[in-house]
Design a protein around this nucleic acid. Structure first.
Lengths: 221, 221
DNA sequence: GTCTATATGTTGATAGAC
DNA sequence: GTCTATCAACATATAGAC
């Protein structure tokens, strides 16, 4: 993470103390930390890396956080909270199952892009520690809710029935989650474009189609 | 990785030596090692973990491999070789761009499922060491070839033109790559089913469609 | 080829001065 | 709240006996 426009470092500094370095907000520091976690991997990032990225020594850094695992917990909690909330909103909105599903796809994609570093870290958790296992369990619960949406849409004949809904759910949200592999805030595609692309590719696939979806379907040229 | 049917451990033992433990093949050991890498993460896996999984002490293990990084190189080389080969075959086959693309989707999916642990490890590489950076570079080259296939299909009007081909490529192969997150060889869905599901979802999306694709297109119920 | 023992470096975390 | 100094645990890797 170099210092580019929109770099989290700019948010981290609350005000400069009278001593040597700067003072930091809890949240600003966390964003820096998560950036390092995502660069080096959670295991690969050392407390020395994390503190240096904050402009603090290890000791000063330990004054703000109890340890590496607490940092991970705070980060994945933020991601899980955001994903959980958007899913709550989607289901509360009601409507046809297929529309709820499309809303869930758009909503989770939006959250992923808006909370990119936190969701990225969440998706890379492997389960080596208690914090990680707890995060995995909560993530599985979210996945189950998404799978249930797909199942409902399939049960009511609103989406294709020739593929197992569980498989569809995994592939679909696998596509969404894969955004963490390449999306970066300053890139060519805007969030809005990406959300549209994901939703449209999910619904219609690659095939060419006229603007009015009810025209006869023809494949290729 | 416990000892289940089809467990790599069974392939690892070549024959029992006259001394205490067993002898191992280079390749069988590598499969065990990659399993541990994927469980604990490359950084999280210690040489102690790796040797213990092989039933050897650390020292005996070092007799077979020069170190942790060599193991990683061998593993990602295997994945990169397999992916590269399938892509070579696809392009050599010729045909319409859209058909080459569909073949590439099927081919990379098949390779991913067949070489699951190796591809999984490859996809998790972050770039902390020279070996990792080299692997990332080779992977980017493969991604570029896939993106070029999508671009060709778009240029000749064989796939939808309302989404940036680069974005399509990333989402499509992101979906394929997401299989490493959950596919396990003994599961309910066969490789064949999964390849079909990926290809069909990619081409047609979620929408219900009659068996004959040329019937008038209707959405929902 | 495998073992026990150990060298050597790194890491997460703490002590205590200022 | 930040620093320098340091610890105990653990990691990669090697030495050398059998």
């Amino acid at each position: 993470m170099s210092t580019e426009p929109g770099d989290p470092a700019s948010d981290a500094v609350a005000h400069v103390g009278r001593g040597r370095p700067a003072r930091y907000t809890h949240e600003g520091l966390l964003e820096l930390v998560v950036g390092v976690f995502n660069e080096r991997g959670y295991d690969g990032a050392t407390m020395e890396d994390l503190s240096r990225a904050s402009g603090l020594t290890k000791s000063a850094f330990y004054h703000h956080f109890s340890g590496k695992e607490q940092l991970l917990r705070m980060a994945v909690d933020r991601a899980l909270g955001a994903l959980s909330a958007v899913l709550d909103g989607t289901v509360a909105g009601g409507g046809r199952a297929v529309d709820q599903l499309e809303n869930a796809i758009r909503g989770t994609t939006e959250v992923l892009l808006a909370e990119l570093p936190y969701v990225t870290l969440l998706l890379r958790v492997r389960g080596n520690t208690d914090v990680e296992r707890e995060a995995l369990a909560r993530r599985r619960a979210l996945d189950a809710r998404l799978a249930a949406l797909v199942q409902s849409a399939a049960d009511s004949g609103q989406i294709r029935a020739d593929i197992d809904p569980r498989l569809i759910s995994r592939l679909l949200f696998g596509m969404v989650n894969s955004l963490t592999e390449w999306y970066r805030p300053g890139g060519t595609a805007s969030r809005r474009e990406i959300v549209e692309a994901v939703a449209q590719l999910a619904v219609d696939g690659l095939t060419t189609r006229a603007t009015d979806r009810r025209v006869p379907f023809t494949r290729g040229e």
